[in-house]
Design a protein around this nucleic acid. Sequence first.
DNA 1: CCGCCGCAATCGGTGCTACCGATCGTTGCA
DNA 2: TGCAACGATCGGTAGCACCGATTGCGGCGG
Lengths: 314, 314
Amino acid sequence: MTLAGLSLRDLEYAVAVGRLRHFGRAAEQCGVSQSALSEQIRKLEAILGVALFERTRRRVEPTPRGALLLRRAEAVLAEARFLIAAAQHAAEPLSGELRLGVIATLGPYYLPGLLGALRARFPRLQLRLTEARTAELLQQVRRGELDAALLALPADDAELSAQALFFEPFHLVCPAQHVLSQMARVTLADLDRDGMLLLEEGHCLRDQALALCGTAAAGSPARFASSLEMLRNMIAAGEGFSLLPLLATAGRAADGLTHCRKLDDPAAGRTIGLCWRRSDPRGEEFRTLAALLAAEAPAGTRRCHGAAVGGDAV
Amino acid sequence: MTLAGLSLRDLEYAVAVGRLRHFGRAAEQCGVSQSALSEQIRKLEAILGVALFERTRRRVEPTPRGALLLRRAEAVLAEARFLIAAAQHAAEPLSGELRLGVIATLGPYYLPGLLGALRARFPRLQLRLTEARTAELLQQVRRGELDAALLALPADDAELSAQALFFEPFHLVCPAQHVLSQMARVTLADLDRDGMLLLEEGHCLRDQALALCGTAAAGSPARFASSLEMLRNMIAAGEGFSLLPLLATAGRAADGLTHCRKLDDPAAGRTIGLCWRRSDPRGEEFRTLAALLAAEAPAGTRRCHGAAVGGDAV
DNA sequence: CCGCCGCAATCGGTGCTACCGATCGTTGCA
DNA sequence: TGCAACGATCGGTAGCACCGATTGCGGCGG
């Protein structure tokens, strides 16, 4: 368009000549032959319509106009070098801003222990964290409002890629005096669907709990909690029991009001994964990140390793 | 050097894609085929080491890093456009700064009436005026400390070009009651060398006056003036007479103390010319300027027209 | 469910031009 | 007067920007 044929390289040549006052040495410094530099300067002068230099056999001096334009040229080059420098920074994997979403039943229990390791490994990574429910997270990732999300797999979406991080078992949490707390072994089959407390609709944890305990029966609305913490309070109040992900139970077993125990079903739990837009060019970085997260899987979980799960196979 | 292969055109392509979010339309706007633009974007991404865009079939979005780098790219382009704009301004003939020297026996009498016309014709020309004697002016022009000078030709210097502007006759100025003021006709031959007042050494006018009046006799040192005005005062005081250039006599004839009259020698006078470094790329502009100055030659002078006088022919 | 459309990527071919080495012309110097 | 330095110029070459055509993929309408 308006920048007819102007080239950064030619500006460099001109600036070099302006500095060194010598075509030969300028050519050497620019790594081209003197003839090439001479021709390019000539071309540049033609483009600008201004004679940049006054040539004598013994002297090369910028004309007054040339000196002014050379200063402008240096400004252009400076900006270009800023661009290069910014690109070099940006080229570092997992640097800069990363908008990461997390499901509400994982974030508060998982992230606090994670951020330190993350910062140590990727000090230039700036996390922007969002907490929401699975459907919202997926939507935001699809729309590009988030770069990636931590959620329970599978996240069935052809547009997304995902990689499993670790398997987080569900534990049974019931009131301290509850009959389930007395049994030697507890399996999913032992759970009374009517006594189970659930999260509101939209939380994947609710669906997983229901799926584990067979077909849904119409529970009373009062038995829905809007958050995990609320759910825990309801259990402590004797309202019923529930399945809670391991990380949400850590360090809380000894409050006296609730009883927390493992289930004897190894399949009872959820697979936490990282997902992102399949089309995002940072796919490799996300895999690297996922590898780190899997390697740093919290105690009690079972680390997943292996290839990422492709979009439609998630 | 450090800006490996970066090209302003490619930055324009990238910015267009970033704005339009569409390779095809961006290509159209940039006036290239879609394939060319696509390849150049790919090359640019390779150079920067950063994926600038996330491509889906239906969407093209800058990556967060891409968005950042595109902003930098726009800054580069903005500077480049400034450069182009500055060049377009600078390309206007006789615009910008012009360091012009004038001999002291001409400047004060010639320039005041000239500057208005000059400003009207070349409103963007900014004159930096210097007053000095011929040798100094020539030296400064040669050294590039001045761009051009107004002086009496010939200025014999192979390094310089010059163009004659006008012939300025010398008038005889003598005390009002002086014998020369009574004569019907006065020629150079009538002038008594011992009664003639001169400027100090270095002034070309001194040399010219001496040359016109034959070989020099040793005048008394007291009869040298350091400036034309001083010379005029000495004449008014009855110290002697002198030859003064026409412009220096204008509007002063009626002061009662001095008498001013033409000489009957058409050759008595000096040719005022403009000179500049032969190697200065603005030669054409100087010729244009000289043409204007010749056309605007002051009343009483004889305009010179025709080709410029080459350096060694001056 | 299929075929069409829109779009970016890709491919093969072409012409421009940046580049080089060699040479020229000028200038200043020994 | 010959020599050295320097920028301009020239002929030839190779790289690459560009083009038109095609492919491949995803969305949409029938």
